[in-house]
């Protein structure tokens, strides 16, 4: 094992499943024998606030927080949240972004503006962004809760362990509690992987409008 630490920042809004995704990543890392720390900053019990979770793993992890400018991967469950945390990425890090726009009341009331195109903003600043509509994929698969699995699938090929081990970590959870969900989660995971692969290759049909 090298001394290299992998830093993954998962972000989104309250109730989107950010914590669960980070937890699965962390579990996969310790199953691989890595030392791992996972830090959470959740607001209060109420909904809708900004949520982030820092996952760090490697041979020996000291600080539980990712230093700004050192994240390898940013997993954004919401597009403006992706832009909020983009500065956490290291040069060459990637932002995996679900393009859903969750408009908070302060915006819909007209007190603040939601950026027209947060992805374009990030790209203009030089950030490598792989964006896709995870909600649409989940809907096609028949369950919006699959967004979590899709987003994890999307980053699976960018981790220092095989994608299959992350998949097993997700699927294993369902195998015990809801075996009926195993197959659809596998498909969601693969769909996420495929979406990210397409974006990485730059040949997604969505490239034109983002």
């Amino acid at each position: 094992m090298t001394d290299i630490i992998t830093n993954i920042l998962v972000c989104g809004t309250g109730g989107q499943g950010v914590m669960t995704a980070a937890e699965i990543l962390a579990q996969a890392a310790i199953t691989k024998g890595f030392d791992c720390k996972k830090s959470e900053v959740a607001g209060m019990a109420q909904r809708g606030g900004v949520v982030t979770s820092h996952v760090r793993f490697g041979k020996r992890v000291w600080s539980p927080v990712i230093t700004p400018g050192t994240a390898d991967i940013l997993v954004a469950f919401e597009v403006a949240e992706g832009s909020r945390w983009a500065d956490m990425l290291r040069p060459g890090g990637i932002a995996m972004v679900n393009t859903i726009r969750l408009v908070p009341p302060v915006v819909s009331m007209g007190l603040f503006k939601y950026p027209d195109d947060p992805v374009a903003q990030m790209r203009a600043a030089g950030v490598t962004v792989y964006d896709f509509d995870a909600g649409a994929i989940a809907r096609d698969l028949g369950d919006l809760k699959l967004v979590n699995t899709i987003m994890l699938g999307a980053i699976a090929d960018f981790l220092p362990f095989p994608a299959s081990e992350l998949e097993e970590q997700i699927v294993g959870r369902f195998r015990e509690r809801k075996p009926a969900m195993v197959e659809v989660n596998k498909r969601a995971f693969d769909a996420g992987r495929e979406a990210a692969r397409q974006r990485a290759a730059g040949n997604s049909p969505m490239a034109a409008n983002s």
Binding site: G14, G48, G49, A86, V106, F112
Partner: peptide, 12 residues
Amino acid sequence: TYPKFEPFPRPP
């Protein structure tokens, strides 16, 4: 490396 975007607040 990358700038800090402050899109809008998202209070709970």
